[in-house]
Write a protein that binds this DNA or RNA. Structure first.
Lengths: 224, 224
DNA sequence: TGCTATCGGAGCGTTTCGCTCCGAATGAAG
DNA sequence: CTTCATTCGGAGCGAAACGCTCCGATAGCA
Protein backbone atom coordinates (compact mmCIF):
# COMPACT_ATOMS: atom_id res chain seq x y z
CA UNK A 1 0.00 0.00 0.00
CA UNK A 2 2.74 2.43 0.95
CA UNK A 3 6.42 2.87 0.45
CA UNK A 4 8.11 -0.15 2.01
CA UNK A 5 11.09 1.89 3.04
CA UNK A 6 9.03 3.82 5.58
CA UNK A 7 7.03 0.88 6.79
CA UNK A 8 9.88 -0.35 8.90
CA UNK A 9 9.93 2.85 10.87
CA UNK A 10 6.64 2.39 12.62
CA UNK A 11 4.11 0.01 11.18
CA UNK A 12 0.80 1.22 12.43
CA UNK A 13 1.78 4.77 13.12
CA UNK A 14 2.78 5.22 9.52
CA UNK A 15 -0.78 4.42 8.53
CA UNK A 16 -1.99 6.92 11.09
CA UNK A 17 0.11 9.66 9.57
CA UNK A 18 -0.98 8.73 6.11
CA UNK A 19 -4.59 8.83 7.20
CA UNK A 20 -4.03 12.19 8.78
CA UNK A 21 -2.99 13.66 5.46
CA UNK A 22 -5.62 11.86 3.44
CA UNK A 23 -8.30 13.26 5.71
CA UNK A 24 -6.97 16.76 5.34
CA UNK A 25 -6.80 16.45 1.56
CA UNK A 26 -10.26 14.98 1.31
CA UNK A 27 -11.68 17.62 3.62
CA UNK A 28 -10.23 20.38 1.51
CA UNK A 29 -11.76 19.00 -1.64
CA UNK A 30 -15.13 18.34 -0.10
CA UNK A 31 -15.44 21.61 1.79
CA UNK A 32 -14.28 23.58 -1.20
CA UNK A 33 -16.81 21.86 -3.40
CA UNK A 34 -19.84 21.75 -1.08
CA UNK A 35 -19.14 24.60 1.31
CA UNK A 36 -19.20 24.43 5.09
CA UNK A 37 -22.37 22.38 4.91
CA UNK A 38 -20.52 19.33 3.68
CA UNK A 39 -20.87 16.31 5.97
CA UNK A 40 -18.07 14.63 7.84
CA UNK A 41 -19.28 11.27 6.58
CA UNK A 42 -18.58 12.38 3.04
CA UNK A 43 -15.11 13.50 4.02
CA UNK A 44 -14.35 10.21 5.72
CA UNK A 45 -15.57 8.24 2.74
CA UNK A 46 -13.59 10.35 0.31
CA UNK A 47 -10.50 9.82 2.44
CA UNK A 48 -11.13 6.09 2.61
CA UNK A 49 -11.10 6.26 6.38
CA UNK A 50 -13.52 5.51 9.19
CA UNK A 51 -15.18 8.09 11.35
CA UNK A 52 -13.16 6.94 14.32
CA UNK A 53 -9.87 7.70 12.65
CA UNK A 54 -11.14 11.10 11.63
CA UNK A 55 -12.38 12.11 15.05
CA UNK A 56 -9.35 10.92 16.97
CA UNK A 57 -7.25 13.58 15.28
CA UNK A 58 -9.78 16.35 14.85
CA UNK A 59 -11.98 16.86 17.85
CA UNK A 60 -14.82 18.24 15.80
CA UNK A 61 -15.89 19.36 12.40
CA UNK A 62 -15.07 22.92 13.37
CA UNK A 63 -11.55 21.94 14.34
CA UNK A 64 -11.09 20.41 10.94
CA UNK A 65 -12.39 23.53 9.28
CA UNK A 66 -10.10 25.77 11.29
CA UNK A 67 -7.05 23.68 10.46
CA UNK A 68 -8.05 23.71 6.80
CA UNK A 69 -8.53 27.44 6.82
CA UNK A 70 -5.09 28.00 8.25
CA UNK A 71 -3.58 25.64 5.71
CA UNK A 72 -5.25 27.46 2.85
CA UNK A 73 -4.04 30.83 4.08
CA UNK A 74 -0.51 29.60 4.57
CA UNK A 75 -0.50 28.17 1.09
CA UNK A 76 -1.61 31.45 -0.35
CA UNK A 77 1.15 33.19 1.61
CA UNK A 78 3.69 30.86 0.08
CA UNK A 79 2.25 31.55 -3.35
CA UNK A 80 2.53 35.28 -2.73
CA UNK A 81 6.14 34.99 -1.62
CA UNK A 82 6.95 32.97 -4.71
CA UNK A 83 5.24 35.60 -6.82
CA UNK A 84 7.32 38.38 -5.28
CA UNK A 85 10.45 36.44 -6.16
CA UNK A 86 9.36 35.98 -9.77
CA UNK A 87 11.44 37.73 -12.49
CA UNK A 88 8.59 40.03 -13.49
CA UNK A 89 5.52 41.22 -11.66
CA UNK A 90 2.93 40.01 -14.12
CA UNK A 91 3.92 36.36 -14.28
CA UNK A 92 4.21 36.47 -10.52
CA UNK A 93 0.70 37.83 -10.09
CA UNK A 94 -0.72 35.50 -12.70
CA UNK A 95 0.91 32.47 -11.11
CA UNK A 96 -0.36 33.57 -7.72
CA UNK A 97 -3.94 33.72 -8.91
CA UNK A 98 -3.71 30.41 -10.71
CA UNK A 99 -2.19 28.73 -7.68
CA UNK A 100 -4.82 30.04 -5.29
CA UNK A 101 -7.68 29.07 -7.55
CA UNK A 102 -6.26 25.64 -8.29
CA UNK A 103 -5.77 24.85 -4.60
CA UNK A 104 -9.16 26.17 -3.67
CA UNK A 105 -7.87 28.76 -1.23
CA UNK A 106 -10.54 31.12 -2.37
CA UNK A 107 -13.21 28.55 -1.66
CA UNK A 108 -11.96 27.94 1.84
CA UNK A 109 -11.50 31.49 2.99
CA UNK A 110 -15.21 32.39 3.14
CA UNK A 111 -15.80 29.31 5.25
CA UNK A 112 -14.21 31.22 8.09
CA UNK A 113 -17.51 33.00 8.52
CA UNK A 114 -18.97 29.87 10.06
CA UNK A 115 -16.46 29.25 12.82
CA UNK A 116 -14.89 30.95 15.76
CA UNK A 117 -11.79 32.72 14.61
CA UNK A 118 -8.59 32.71 16.60
CA UNK A 119 -6.24 35.70 16.77
CA UNK A 120 -3.69 33.52 15.02
CA UNK A 121 -6.00 33.17 12.04
CA UNK A 122 -6.49 36.92 11.84
CA UNK A 123 -2.77 37.47 11.93
CA UNK A 124 -2.17 34.97 9.16
CA UNK A 125 -4.92 36.49 7.06
CA UNK A 126 -3.47 39.97 7.45
CA UNK A 127 0.01 38.76 6.61
CA UNK A 128 -1.32 37.29 3.39
CA UNK A 129 -3.06 40.52 2.51
CA UNK A 130 0.06 42.57 3.13
CA UNK A 131 2.01 40.36 0.76
CA UNK A 132 -0.69 40.64 -1.86
CA UNK A 133 -0.54 44.41 -1.55
CA UNK A 134 3.18 44.33 -2.17
CA UNK A 135 2.46 42.20 -5.21
CA UNK A 136 -0.05 44.69 -6.55
CA UNK A 137 2.23 47.62 -5.83
CA UNK A 138 5.05 46.01 -7.70
CA UNK A 139 2.82 45.26 -10.66
CA UNK A 140 1.64 48.86 -10.75
CA UNK A 141 5.23 50.10 -10.57
CA UNK A 142 6.14 47.91 -13.52
CA UNK A 143 3.09 49.19 -15.35
CA UNK A 144 1.51 45.81 -15.99
CA UNK A 145 -1.55 46.15 -13.77
CA UNK A 146 -4.61 48.05 -14.89
CA UNK A 147 -5.03 51.44 -13.23
CA UNK A 148 -7.23 51.39 -10.16
CA UNK A 149 -6.93 47.69 -9.46
CA UNK A 150 -6.21 47.04 -5.79
CA UNK A 151 -4.98 44.02 -3.89
CA UNK A 152 -8.49 43.39 -2.64
CA UNK A 153 -9.80 43.31 -6.19
CA UNK A 154 -7.43 40.45 -6.81
CA UNK A 155 -8.41 38.76 -3.56
CA UNK A 156 -12.08 38.89 -4.45
CA UNK A 157 -11.35 37.59 -7.92
CA UNK A 158 -9.56 34.60 -6.42
CA UNK A 159 -12.48 34.01 -4.14
CA UNK A 160 -14.99 34.19 -6.96
CA UNK A 161 -13.15 31.64 -9.02
CA UNK A 162 -12.53 29.34 -6.10
CA UNK A 163 -16.20 29.21 -5.16
CA UNK A 164 -16.81 25.97 -6.87
CA UNK A 165 -13.87 24.26 -5.30
CA UNK A 166 -10.79 22.87 -6.97
CA UNK A 167 -12.10 21.28 -10.12
CA UNK A 168 -10.60 17.84 -10.55
CA UNK A 169 -7.62 18.01 -12.92
CA UNK A 170 -8.35 16.82 -16.41
CA UNK A 171 -12.07 17.49 -16.20
CA UNK A 172 -13.89 19.84 -18.51
CA UNK A 173 -14.87 21.91 -15.49
CA UNK A 174 -11.24 22.67 -14.94
CA UNK A 175 -10.72 23.60 -18.56
CA UNK A 176 -13.67 25.97 -18.49
CA UNK A 177 -12.43 27.64 -15.36
CA UNK A 178 -9.02 28.11 -16.89
CA UNK A 179 -10.54 29.80 -19.91
CA UNK A 180 -12.60 32.18 -17.81
CA UNK A 181 -9.64 32.86 -15.59
CA UNK A 182 -7.51 33.68 -18.60
CA UNK A 183 -10.19 36.09 -19.78
CA UNK A 184 -10.40 37.80 -16.41
CA UNK A 185 -6.64 38.04 -16.05
CA UNK A 186 -6.42 39.73 -19.42
CA UNK A 187 -8.98 42.22 -18.20
CA UNK A 188 -6.81 42.78 -15.16
CA UNK A 189 -3.82 43.58 -17.27
CA UNK A 190 -2.92 47.07 -18.22
CA UNK A 191 -4.51 48.06 -21.50
CA UNK A 192 -6.49 50.89 -22.94
CA UNK A 193 -9.71 50.21 -21.11
CA UNK A 194 -11.75 52.69 -19.17
CA UNK A 195 -11.61 53.12 -15.43
CA UNK A 196 -13.18 50.57 -13.14
CA UNK A 197 -16.68 51.32 -11.91
CA UNK A 198 -17.45 52.20 -8.33
CA UNK A 199 -15.20 52.45 -5.32
CA UNK A 200 -12.50 49.92 -4.58
CA UNK A 201 -13.40 47.11 -2.15
CA UNK A 202 -12.84 48.06 1.46
CA UNK A 203 -10.82 46.10 3.97
CA UNK A 204 -13.61 46.40 6.51
CA UNK A 205 -16.05 44.64 4.24
CA UNK A 206 -13.53 42.01 3.30
CA UNK A 207 -12.95 41.20 6.94
CA UNK A 208 -16.59 41.27 7.90
CA UNK A 209 -17.17 37.85 6.40
CA UNK A 210 -15.03 36.47 9.18
CA UNK A 211 -17.22 37.66 11.97
CA UNK A 212 -19.33 34.83 13.18
CA UNK A 213 -23.00 35.58 12.83
CA UNK A 214 -24.59 35.02 16.24
CA UNK A 215 -27.09 32.62 14.82
CA UNK A 216 -27.96 31.53 11.32
CA UNK A 217 -31.57 32.24 12.15
CA UNK A 218 -33.57 32.70 8.97
CA UNK A 219 -34.99 36.08 8.38
CA UNK A 220 -32.08 38.46 8.42
CA UNK A 221 -31.22 38.25 4.72
CA UNK A 222 -30.90 41.96 4.88
CA UNK A 223 -29.03 44.42 2.79
CA UNK A 224 -25.68 45.70 3.97
CA UNK B 1 -51.83 46.88 -12.86
CA UNK B 2 -55.37 46.55 -11.55
CA UNK B 3 -57.95 45.05 -13.84
CA UNK B 4 -60.92 47.41 -13.77
CA UNK B 5 -63.25 45.17 -15.71
CA UNK B 6 -62.88 42.26 -13.33
CA UNK B 7 -64.58 43.39 -10.21
CA UNK B 8 -64.20 39.95 -8.73
CA UNK B 9 -60.46 40.43 -8.31
CA UNK B 10 -60.66 42.60 -5.26
CA UNK B 11 -60.31 42.48 -1.55
CA UNK B 12 -58.97 39.15 -0.44
CA UNK B 13 -58.32 37.79 -3.90
CA UNK B 14 -56.16 40.76 -4.70
CA UNK B 15 -54.06 39.95 -1.67
CA UNK B 16 -53.76 36.40 -2.89
CA UNK B 17 -52.36 37.50 -6.22
CA UNK B 18 -50.00 39.90 -4.52
CA UNK B 19 -48.80 37.12 -2.28
CA UNK B 20 -48.16 34.86 -5.24
CA UNK B 21 -45.82 37.36 -6.76
CA UNK B 22 -44.12 38.20 -3.49
CA UNK B 23 -43.45 34.52 -2.92
CA UNK B 24 -41.94 34.15 -6.35
CA UNK B 25 -39.73 37.18 -5.88
CA UNK B 26 -38.61 36.10 -2.44
CA UNK B 27 -37.94 32.60 -3.65
CA UNK B 28 -35.75 33.84 -6.45
CA UNK B 29 -33.64 35.90 -4.10
CA UNK B 30 -33.31 33.21 -1.48
CA UNK B 31 -32.59 30.35 -3.86
CA UNK B 32 -30.12 32.42 -5.78
CA UNK B 33 -28.33 33.38 -2.60
CA UNK B 34 -28.39 30.07 -0.73
CA UNK B 35 -28.75 27.55 -3.51
CA UNK B 36 -31.30 24.75 -3.73
CA UNK B 37 -30.71 23.99 -0.06
CA UNK B 38 -32.52 27.10 1.07
CA UNK B 39 -35.51 26.41 3.29
CA UNK B 40 -39.09 27.18 2.45
CA UNK B 41 -39.52 28.81 5.85
CA UNK B 42 -36.93 31.39 4.89
CA UNK B 43 -38.74 32.07 1.65
CA UNK B 44 -42.08 32.50 3.38
CA UNK B 45 -40.61 34.85 5.94
CA UNK B 46 -38.81 36.87 3.31
CA UNK B 47 -42.07 37.17 1.40
CA UNK B 48 -43.94 38.19 4.55
CA UNK B 49 -46.32 35.30 4.04
CA UNK B 50 -47.35 32.24 5.99
CA UNK B 51 -46.52 28.70 5.02
CA UNK B 52 -50.15 28.06 4.23
CA UNK B 53 -50.28 30.75 1.59
CA UNK B 54 -47.12 29.47 0.04
CA UNK B 55 -48.15 25.86 -0.16
CA UNK B 56 -51.63 26.46 -1.50
CA UNK B 57 -50.14 28.05 -4.57
CA UNK B 58 -47.09 25.84 -5.04
CA UNK B 59 -47.60 22.22 -4.25
CA UNK B 60 -44.04 21.61 -3.18
CA UNK B 61 -40.62 23.11 -2.96
CA UNK B 62 -39.72 21.37 -6.20
CA UNK B 63 -42.67 22.96 -7.96
CA UNK B 64 -41.49 26.34 -6.81
CA UNK B 65 -37.99 25.63 -8.05
CA UNK B 66 -39.23 24.49 -11.44
CA UNK B 67 -41.36 27.58 -11.90
CA UNK B 68 -38.45 29.74 -10.88
CA UNK B 69 -36.11 28.01 -13.27
CA UNK B 70 -38.46 28.60 -16.16
CA UNK B 71 -38.86 32.23 -15.19
CA UNK B 72 -35.11 32.75 -15.09
CA UNK B 73 -34.63 31.17 -18.49
CA UNK B 74 -37.40 33.21 -20.03
CA UNK B 75 -35.90 36.37 -18.62
CA UNK B 76 -32.56 35.54 -20.11
CA UNK B 77 -34.25 34.94 -23.45
CA UNK B 78 -35.82 38.36 -23.28
CA UNK B 79 -32.44 39.85 -22.45
CA UNK B 80 -30.92 38.09 -25.44
CA UNK B 81 -33.62 39.38 -27.76
CA UNK B 82 -33.09 42.90 -26.48
CA UNK B 83 -29.38 42.49 -27.04
CA UNK B 84 -29.90 41.41 -30.64
CA UNK B 85 -31.93 44.55 -31.20
CA UNK B 86 -29.24 46.81 -29.74
CA UNK B 87 -27.50 49.24 -32.11
CA UNK B 88 -24.15 47.55 -31.78
CA UNK B 89 -23.18 44.05 -30.82
CA UNK B 90 -20.89 44.91 -27.92
CA UNK B 91 -23.29 47.00 -25.89
CA UNK B 92 -25.90 44.33 -26.57
CA UNK B 93 -23.69 41.57 -25.27
CA UNK B 94 -22.53 43.61 -22.33
CA UNK B 95 -26.08 44.51 -21.35
CA UNK B 96 -27.10 40.89 -21.69
CA UNK B 97 -24.42 39.74 -19.28
CA UNK B 98 -25.20 42.50 -16.82
CA UNK B 99 -28.90 41.75 -16.91
CA UNK B 100 -28.46 38.03 -16.39
CA UNK B 101 -26.06 38.52 -13.51
CA UNK B 102 -28.19 41.17 -11.87
CA UNK B 103 -31.34 39.04 -12.04
CA UNK B 104 -29.52 35.97 -10.83
CA UNK B 105 -30.37 33.88 -13.87
CA UNK B 106 -26.96 32.33 -13.71
CA UNK B 107 -27.53 31.35 -10.12
CA UNK B 108 -30.84 29.68 -10.87
CA UNK B 109 -29.87 27.71 -13.92
CA UNK B 110 -27.60 25.22 -12.12
CA UNK B 111 -30.40 24.51 -9.66
CA UNK B 112 -32.00 22.53 -12.42
CA UNK B 113 -29.60 19.75 -11.55
CA UNK B 114 -31.60 19.01 -8.43
CA UNK B 115 -35.03 18.56 -9.96
CA UNK B 116 -36.82 16.56 -12.55
CA UNK B 117 -36.66 18.40 -15.81
CA UNK B 118 -39.57 18.67 -18.16
CA UNK B 119 -39.21 18.66 -21.94
CA UNK B 120 -40.54 22.20 -21.88
CA UNK B 121 -37.59 23.29 -19.77
CA UNK B 122 -35.14 21.70 -22.17
CA UNK B 123 -36.76 23.45 -25.07
CA UNK B 124 -36.61 26.82 -23.35
CA UNK B 125 -33.00 26.30 -22.40
CA UNK B 126 -32.05 25.44 -25.96
CA UNK B 127 -33.90 28.41 -27.32
CA UNK B 128 -31.93 30.67 -25.01
CA UNK B 129 -28.68 29.11 -26.10
CA UNK B 130 -29.50 29.55 -29.76
CA UNK B 131 -30.15 33.24 -29.21
CA UNK B 132 -26.89 33.59 -27.30
CA UNK B 133 -25.09 31.98 -30.21
CA UNK B 134 -26.58 34.52 -32.59
CA UNK B 135 -25.38 37.19 -30.20
CA UNK B 136 -21.85 35.84 -30.19
CA UNK B 137 -21.84 35.42 -33.96
CA UNK B 138 -22.90 38.98 -34.46
CA UNK B 139 -20.23 40.24 -32.08
CA UNK B 140 -17.58 38.26 -33.94
CA UNK B 141 -18.81 39.61 -37.26
CA UNK B 142 -18.51 43.14 -35.92
CA UNK B 143 -15.06 42.33 -34.62
CA UNK B 144 -15.73 43.23 -31.01
CA UNK B 145 -15.48 39.79 -29.46
CA UNK B 146 -12.16 38.20 -28.71
CA UNK B 147 -11.19 35.41 -31.10
CA UNK B 148 -12.13 31.97 -29.91
CA UNK B 149 -14.81 33.05 -27.49
CA UNK B 150 -17.97 31.00 -27.89
CA UNK B 151 -21.52 31.46 -26.70
CA UNK B 152 -20.96 28.84 -24.03
CA UNK B 153 -17.98 30.77 -22.70
CA UNK B 154 -20.35 33.66 -22.11
CA UNK B 155 -22.96 31.36 -20.58
CA UNK B 156 -20.46 29.96 -18.11
CA UNK B 157 -19.26 33.42 -17.26
CA UNK B 158 -22.79 34.47 -16.41
CA UNK B 159 -23.19 31.42 -14.26
CA UNK B 160 -19.95 32.05 -12.43
CA UNK B 161 -20.89 35.57 -11.57
CA UNK B 162 -24.43 34.71 -10.64
CA UNK B 163 -23.41 32.02 -8.25
CA UNK B 164 -23.91 34.10 -5.15
CA UNK B 165 -27.26 35.40 -6.21
CA UNK B 166 -28.31 38.92 -7.00
CA UNK B 167 -26.44 41.10 -4.55
CA UNK B 168 -28.81 43.61 -3.02
CA UNK B 169 -28.53 46.94 -4.83
CA UNK B 170 -26.45 49.52 -3.06
CA UNK B 171 -24.39 47.02 -1.11
CA UNK B 172 -20.67 46.77 -1.33
CA UNK B 173 -21.06 43.20 -2.52
CA UNK B 174 -22.82 44.50 -5.57
CA UNK B 175 -20.12 47.09 -6.21
CA UNK B 176 -17.42 44.46 -6.00
CA UNK B 177 -19.22 42.21 -8.39
CA UNK B 178 -19.62 45.03 -10.86
CA UNK B 179 -15.93 45.75 -10.75
CA UNK B 180 -15.00 42.13 -11.35
CA UNK B 181 -17.59 41.87 -14.08
CA UNK B 182 -16.17 44.96 -15.77
CA UNK B 183 -12.73 43.40 -15.63
CA UNK B 184 -13.92 40.13 -17.12
CA UNK B 185 -15.92 41.85 -19.85
CA UNK B 186 -12.83 43.79 -20.88
CA UNK B 187 -11.00 40.50 -21.10
CA UNK B 188 -13.80 39.25 -23.32
CA UNK B 189 -13.44 42.13 -25.68
CA UNK B 190 -11.31 42.00 -28.75
CA UNK B 191 -7.80 43.17 -28.02
CA UNK B 192 -4.26 42.02 -28.62
CA UNK B 193 -4.24 39.16 -26.16
CA UNK B 194 -3.14 35.64 -26.87
CA UNK B 195 -5.45 32.75 -27.69
CA UNK B 196 -7.63 31.21 -25.02
CA UNK B 197 -6.27 28.07 -23.36
CA UNK B 198 -7.78 24.66 -23.88
CA UNK B 199 -10.79 23.58 -25.91
CA UNK B 200 -14.04 25.52 -25.92
CA UNK B 201 -16.76 24.33 -23.54
CA UNK B 202 -18.91 21.58 -25.02
CA UNK B 203 -22.68 21.62 -25.21
CA UNK B 204 -22.78 18.09 -23.83
CA UNK B 205 -21.04 19.11 -20.65
CA UNK B 206 -23.15 22.22 -20.32
CA UNK B 207 -26.30 20.15 -20.50
CA UNK B 208 -25.05 17.45 -18.20
CA UNK B 209 -25.66 19.63 -15.16
CA UNK B 210 -29.34 19.20 -15.84
CA UNK B 211 -29.32 15.48 -15.45
CA UNK B 212 -30.41 14.50 -11.99
CA UNK B 213 -27.35 13.54 -10.00
CA UNK B 214 -26.77 10.30 -8.07
CA UNK B 215 -27.89 12.24 -5.04
CA UNK B 216 -31.64 11.62 -5.20
CA UNK B 217 -32.70 14.97 -3.82
CA UNK B 218 -32.39 14.97 -0.05
CA UNK B 219 -35.32 17.31 0.31
CA UNK B 220 -38.69 16.14 -0.88
CA UNK B 221 -39.02 12.44 -1.25
CA UNK B 222 -42.63 11.61 -0.66
CA UNK B 223 -44.42 13.95 -2.99
CA UNK B 224 -43.80 14.34 -6.63
C1' DT C 1 0.22 -16.35 21.18
C1' DG C 2 -1.16 -13.06 23.50
C1' DC C 3 -1.08 -7.68 24.12
C1' DT C 4 -1.74 -3.07 22.66
C1' DA C 5 -2.69 0.53 19.58
C1' DT C 6 -5.39 1.72 15.82
C1' DC C 7 -9.08 1.05 12.47
C1' DG C 8 -13.86 1.15 10.46
C1' DG C 9 -18.56 2.08 10.72
C1' DA C 10 -23.22 1.05 12.97
C1' DG C 11 -26.06 3.59 15.83
C1' DC C 12 -27.54 7.31 19.24
C1' DG C 13 -29.50 11.74 20.35
C1' DT C 14 -30.32 16.01 18.41
C1' DT C 15 -31.46 19.22 15.02
C1' DT C 16 -33.43 20.56 10.72
C1' DC C 17 -36.81 20.61 7.22
C1' DG C 18 -40.71 19.92 4.21
C1' DC C 19 -45.28 19.94 4.75
C1' DT C 20 -50.09 19.73 7.07
C1' DC C 21 -53.73 21.47 9.66
C1' DC C 22 -56.60 24.57 11.89
C1' DG C 23 -58.12 28.73 14.41
C1' DA C 24 -58.06 33.73 13.34
C1' DA C 25 -58.89 37.41 10.13
C1' DT C 26 -61.16 39.60 6.24
C1' DG C 27 -64.65 41.12 3.45
C1' DA C 28 -69.07 40.25 0.71
C1' DA C 29 -74.01 39.23 1.10
C1' DG C 30 -78.36 39.44 3.49
C1' DC D 1 -75.02 43.58 12.61
C1' DT D 2 -74.83 38.65 11.60
C1' DT D 3 -73.55 34.96 8.59
C1' DC D 4 -70.78 32.65 5.58
C1' DA D 5 -67.12 31.71 2.36
C1' DT D 6 -62.46 32.39 1.59
C1' DT D 7 -57.75 33.17 2.66
C1' DC D 8 -54.18 34.00 6.04
C1' DG D 9 -50.40 32.79 9.36
C1' DG D 10 -47.65 29.74 11.84
C1' DA D 11 -47.33 25.92 15.48
C1' DG D 12 -46.32 21.37 15.21
C1' DC D 13 -45.59 16.57 13.13
C1' DG D 14 -43.07 12.77 11.12
C1' DA D 15 -39.12 11.83 8.74
C1' DA D 16 -34.60 12.48 7.34
C1' DA D 17 -29.84 14.20 8.08
C1' DC D 18 -26.03 15.06 10.75
C1' DG D 19 -22.35 15.35 14.26
C1' DC D 20 -20.33 12.44 17.13
C1' DT D 21 -19.48 8.14 20.25
C1' DC D 22 -18.51 3.53 21.13
C1' DC D 23 -17.01 -0.96 20.37
C1' DG D 24 -15.82 -5.24 17.89
C1' DA D 25 -12.32 -6.32 14.41
C1' DT D 26 -7.62 -6.00 12.90
C1' DA D 27 -2.66 -5.30 12.35
C1' DG D 28 1.92 -4.82 14.22
C1' DC D 29 5.15 -6.25 18.03
C1' DA D 30 7.34 -9.18 21.73
Amino acid sequence: MAEPQYRSRRGRQAEAERNDRRVLDAAREVFAAHGAGATVAEIAERAGVGMGSLYRRYGSKSDLLRQLCMQAMEESIQAAEAALAAPDAWTGLSDYVHACVARGSGALAPLAGSLETTPEMWETSRRGRRLLEQLADRAHREGVLRAGVTALDVAWLVEFFGRRGPAAPGTEDEAIRRRLLAISLDGLRNHDAGPLPGPAPSARHYERRWQLEPKPTPGDTQHD
